[in-house]
Computed example of a mutant assay.
Amino acid sequence: MADLSIRAISSKADYKTFADLPFRLYADDPNWVPPLKGEALGLLLPEKNGWFSHAKAQLFLAERDGKAVGRISAHIDTLALTMPVEQGFGPGTGQWGLFDAVDGEVAAKLVATAEDWLRGQGMTRALGPISMSIWEEPGLLIEGYDHPPTIMMGHAKREYRGWIEGAGYEPVKRLMTYDLDITQDFPKIVQRIIQSGERNDSIRIREVDKSRFEEEAAIILDILNDAWSDNWGFVPLTPPEIDDIGVKLKPIVFNDLIRIAELDGRPVAFMITLPDLNEALKPLKGNLLPFGWAKLLLWLRRPKVRTMRVPLMGVVKELQSSRLAGQLAFMMIEYIRRAALKRYGATRGEIGWVLDDNQGMRSIAETIDSQVNKIYQIYARAL
Rank of each mutant, 00 (worst) to 15 (best):
L140Q: 14
W135K: 10
P138S: 11
L118W: 06
D116N: 13
V85W: 07
L141H: 03
S133Q: 01
P138C: 13
Q95H: 09
L81T: 07
E115N: 05
P129G: 10
Y145Q: 01
A114H: 08
P129I: 09
K109N: 15
Q87R: 15
L110M: 07
R71K: 15
G94H: 08
L118Y: 01
A112Y: 11
S131I: 06
W117T: 09
L81A: 14
T113A: 12
L98W: 08
S131W: 01
T78D: 14
Q87G: 11
L110P: 03
D116G: 12
T78I: 04
P148E: 07
D103Y: 06
A80T: 08
M132N: 12
D116Y: 11
D100R: 03
G92L: 06
Y145I: 08
E86A: 13
T78P: 02
I130V: 15
Q95K: 14
G90F: 05
Q87C: 11
I130P: 00
L127Q: 05
D77K: 10
D116S: 14
L79P: 00
I130K: 03
R119G: 08
G92T: 04
V102I: 14
D100P: 04
G104H: 07
I134E: 00
T113R: 12
A101L: 07
P149H: 04
I72K: 02
L98T: 05
G120F: 04
M132S: 12
W117P: 00
M83E: 12
L79V: 13
E86S: 14
S73N: 10
L81P: 01
P138D: 07
M123L: 14
G122K: 06
I130E: 00
